[in-house]
């Protein structure tokens, strides 16, 4: 039914909405049918390793408000799709393993590490990168606060810090608890401890943490003031 050695036809049904344009030239390495749980490990290079062509796939998504359709190797992470295919290099590759947060973007309203997700998994998704928040001529309030409080040094983790910072204030507002939230049943507040804990997935080796916190505090304060003004019955 499914012939991976001649996938052009069979994969058409397999890859939703995708035009498969390449085929495997040899059987996958684990030709013995690996279970879908984590039971069977792979040796680094046991014996001859088959050579396989990339599998191409098309994905359509919205990035910073603009519709994009990309034809890409299935292996392409969202991060590399942004940086290499769309040339949106504001999102940084710091570790490529979910250990630093430099690649943080906001997908469908949530911050995620774009290095640990495949672009192909985001069909129809909406991505906001640092470029989508503001421009040098028109900075987002968080970007402006980072400049004012010197919330960066080398600048490499900065886009991820800013995307995270924007999302963190939303997460607090949405009542999502954190490790330092004292009472699980009360709404968390934008305290220093809350912001520090929630930002901890964004490593800054230059050590701008104290300044980033000040930038966030300023923006959180502005947001609170705006909300209060908005609620003013007058």
């Amino acid at each position: 039914m499914r012939n991976h050695g001649n996938a052009d036809v069979s994969r058409r049904g397999l890859l939703l909405g995708a035009a498969a344009s390449a085929a495997l030239t040899a059987t996958p390495r684990h030709g013995q049918a690996m279970p879908a749980d984590a039971d069977v490990p792979s040796a680094p290079h046991p014996g001859p390793v088959p050579i396989m062509n990339p599998v191409m796939n098309r994905v359509s998504l919205t990035v910073n408000g603009a519709a994009q359709t990309l034809e890409m190797d299935t292996r392409t992470t969202l991060l590399d799709a942004l940086r290499e295919h769309l040339r949106l290099t504001g999102t940084k590759k710091g570790c490529d393993h979910g250990q630093c947060g430099a690649c943080t973007v906001i997908v469908d309203g949530r911050r995620i590490n774009s290095c640990l997700t495949l672009a192909v998994m985001h069909e129809g998704g909406s991505v906001t990168t640092v470029e989508g928040l503001g421009t040098p001529a028109k900075l987002h309030p968080m970007q402006a606060a980072f400049v004012k409080h010197d919330g960066y040094q080398c600048g490499y983790c900065t886009p991820g810090q800013i995307c995270s910072a924007v999302a963190v204030l939303d997460e607090i507002k949405a009542g999502i608890p954190s490790h330092v939230t004292a009472s699980l049943t009360d709404a968390p507040q934008a305290t220093n401890a809350e912001m520090r804990e929630r930002m901890s997935g964004n490593v800054c080796r230059c050590g701008a943490y104290s300044n980033i916190l000040e930038a966030m505090t300023e923006v959180a304060g502005q947001k609170m003031a705006d909300q209060q003004n908005g609620r003013d019955p007058a």
Binding site: R2, H4, T27, P28, R29, H30, G31, Q32, A33, M34, P35, A36, T77, H97, G98, N113, C115, L116, T117, L118, M121
Partner: peptide, 19 residues
């Protein structure tokens, strides 16, 4: 499908698998 396709794996979040 996971049982029948050689080398198949599920992917959900992917944060560990892609790593």
């Amino acid at each position: 499908k996971a049982a029948s396709i050689p080398g198949a794996r599920f992917i959900a979040g992917g944060t560990n698998l892609l790593d």
